[in-house]
């Protein structure tokens, strides 16, 4: 910071020094006086008579010695230095603190921006890590879901197979039961038919042999047997 301030002051001093000759020229009229001196020398040596080159050269040399185009006069240097110091003091009193303050504010702002960027980067990294963790969780969860789905599918497949086998066994048992019942029914029907035929035959035999005497004997037998069943 200090180096930066010193560098700024140096640059300002150089600028002032560079400005000084211009100031001297403007206020003191150095080059202008040289030019006037040269013009005067030309007029004096060329007016109405032949040109005295030697005198002209001497006059020009005098003009050169009288006023320098580069080196200012001592009073100008003194006043310029005083002005420089005044300007420097004013600058150090008023401008530099404001400049310093502005620089400080800019530095703070840059620092804050940097810190903010750092924080943003950290937050971004944190979020990225969180996203990565979430993606990892999601993948784990997806794997779990896939495994559960696979297990469910396998369980359902087993249940379907078991149910189909049970239904097939049930159908087989029912078919066997139907066959058994049909057999029993057929045997029963056959027995009933045999019984009907036998009884029909027996009826015919009985009817043929039931003459009146037999009928009376049966009636007497009934009366005697009922009469013996005393209540």
């Amino acid at each position: 910071m200090r180096i930066r301030t010193l560098l700024l002051a140096g640059l300002l001093a150089v600028g002032m020094v560079m400005a000084m000759p211009t100031g001297a020229h403007a206020s003191g009229g150095g080059p202008k006086e040289v030019f006037e001196c040269v013009e005067k020398a030309i007029e004096n040596n060329t007016e109405g008579k032949s040109v005295d080159y030697e005198a002209f050269e001497n006059a020009l040399e005098d003009c050169k010695k009288a006023k320098s185009l580069v080196t200012p006069a001592l009073p100008e240097i003194i006043w310029g230095g005083i002005a420089f110091l005044i300007v420097l003091a004013v600058l150090m009193k008023f401008a530099f603190p404001a400049l310093k303050k502005g620089l400080k504010a800019r530095e703070d702002k840059i620092r804050e921006d940097l810190e903010s960027a750092s924080r943003a980067r950290e937050e971004a990294e944190a979020e990225s890590a969180q996203y990565r963790a979430q993606i990892g969780d999601a993948r784990s969860e997806a794997n779990v879901i896939v495994e559960e789905a696979r297990a469910d599918a396998e369980r359902i497949r087993r249940e379907v197979v078991a149910r189909a086998e049970a239904e097939a066994a049930d159908t087989r048992e029912r078919a066997q039961e139907d066959i058994r019942l049909a057999q029993e029914r057929a045997v029963s029907d056959l027995r009933a038919q045999v019984a009907d035929l036998s009884i029909g035959l027996a009826e015919k035999v009985v009817e043929r042999n039931l003459d009146r005497d037999t009928q009376i004997a049966l009636i007497e037998s009934y009366i005697n047997s009922v009469g013996n069943e005393t209540r």
Binding site: E207, S221, V226, G227, E229, T230
Partner: peptide, 24 residues
């Protein structure tokens, strides 16, 4: 006979029904 078997005084109404074949 039916009176003795049932313990009641009985009146008999006879129906001739050949389907009984024989007996009562």
């Amino acid at each position: 006979a039916l009176g003795r078997a049932t313990g009641k005084a009985v009146e008999v109404k006879v129906i001739v029904d050949p389907s009984v074949l024989g007996g009562l």
